[in-house]
Nucleic acid binder design. Structure first.
Lengths: 151, 151
DNA sequence: GGAAACCGGACGCGGTTGGTCCTATTTGAC
DNA sequence: GTCAAATAGGACCAACCGCGTCCGGTTTCC
C-alpha cells in the first residue's frame, strides 16, 4: 500500500473544491454540502489545513476559510506533511533526531535518506492544482481511496 | 509517516544478513539467531520473500533459504511490493482496474499516476545492497523503525 | 444579546498489523 | 525403514492506530 491517510485524500478534494469556487471565503458546512462529505470531517480537515497555514480561518458569524495561496503553489508534499507528518519511509527520519538508543548498531542508519529525499522531491513537484485538474466540474462526491486492490 | 510495514523492514535486515554470509544456504532458525530477531518472525519474512522468488526455499533436513540473485539486483521496490502490495499512494492503482463505481465522477481519477510512477522509480533505483552498505559488520540486532517521530 | 462559525481536545468504534502457533510435507541422516 | 530437521501454508489472537464524531470554548457579525 504505502497509502496515505484518508484525511489527506479528503484534503485534496476539499482544496480542489475551494479553488474551483469563485467565493474567496467559504464555511466548513458549505464546503461539506458542496463536496458531499460529512461536515465534522470537513471541519477537521480544514482545521488541520489551517494549522499548516495552507488555508486561513476567519472566526465569527459570516466567517469561513480561504486559501492563503493559489492551488498551483500548494504542493502535494505540504498536504501530506500536514496530515501524515514528515515524509519518510521509516521512522528514523533522515538519520538525525537522536533518541534511537541503538544508533551505533543500526546498520542501515542514514541509508534511507536518498530514498526519502527522492520521494520528497517527487511529491514536492506536484501541486494540488495538478491533481485537481481543471476541466472536471463534477461534484467531488467521492474520494479516491474507496477500496484496496488485494495484493 | 508513509511508513512501510515492519515486516518490510525486517526483510531488509534479513536479506542484508544473508548477503553478508558466505554460506549460500541458511536456515530460518540460523538467521534468526544471527540477527537477534524472533524465529517465527524471520520464518514468516522468509516465507513471503520465497513467494516473491527473492529467496528460494529448500525443504527437508539440512534445508534452508538462499538468495536467488545478488543483493545488488534486488530492488527496494521489489521488497516493498512483496510485503505491502503495489506501490501507490492511493488505492486507485493507476486508475485502471474498474470497480470504482464512481469512476466517471472521480475528479482526480488518473491524476495520481505520475506521482505513483515517480515514487516507484525512486524505489526501483535502490538495491538492497545499497541499503545494506558493506562496511558495517554489526550484528543487525535492531531494525530501523523502533519508534515514530511525533508529527 | 443571540446566532453562526471557527478552535482545540477527548472519546470510542473498527480495521489492520504483527506476532505466534499448529499441522502437513519434504528430505537428509542413521 | 525410521526419525529428525526444516520449509509451506494457514489460522488465530492481541495490540495498535486511524478516523469519524462530539463537546465545550471563543470569536465575530447581525
Amino acid at each position: 500500500m504505502l497509502k496515505l491517510s484518508r484525511l489527506t485524500d479528503y484534503a485534496v478534494v476539499v482544496l480542489s473544491r475551494m479553488g474551483r469556487d469563485s467565493e474567496p471565503l467559504q464555511s466548513a458546512p458549505g464546503i461539506a454540502a458542496r463536496t458531499g462529505l460529512a461536515e465534522p470531517t470537513v471541519a477537521k480537515v480544514l482545521k488541520i489545513l489551517a494549522q499548516s497555514e495552507i488555508v486561513e480561518g476567519l472566526r465569527g458569524a459570516r466567517g469561513g476559510y480561504r486559501l492563503t495561496r493559489p492551488l498551483s503553489s500548494i504542493t502535494l508534499a505540504e498536504v501530506i506533511v500536514a496530515f501524515d507528518g514528515p515524509i519518510a519511509l521509516t521512522a528514523c527520519v533522515d538519520g538525525g533526531m537522536g533518541g534511537c538508543e541503538s544508533e551505533h548498531l543500526c546498520p542501515v542508519r542514514g541509508r534511507w535518506d536518498p530514498v526519502n529525499h527522492a520521494i520528497r522531491e517527487a511529491l514536492a513537484g506536484i501541486s494540488v492544482a495538478d491533481l485537481a485538474g481543471g476541466g472536471c466540474g463534477a461534484s467531488l462526491s467521492f474520494t479516491t481511496d474507496q477500496f484496496v486492490a488485494a495484493e
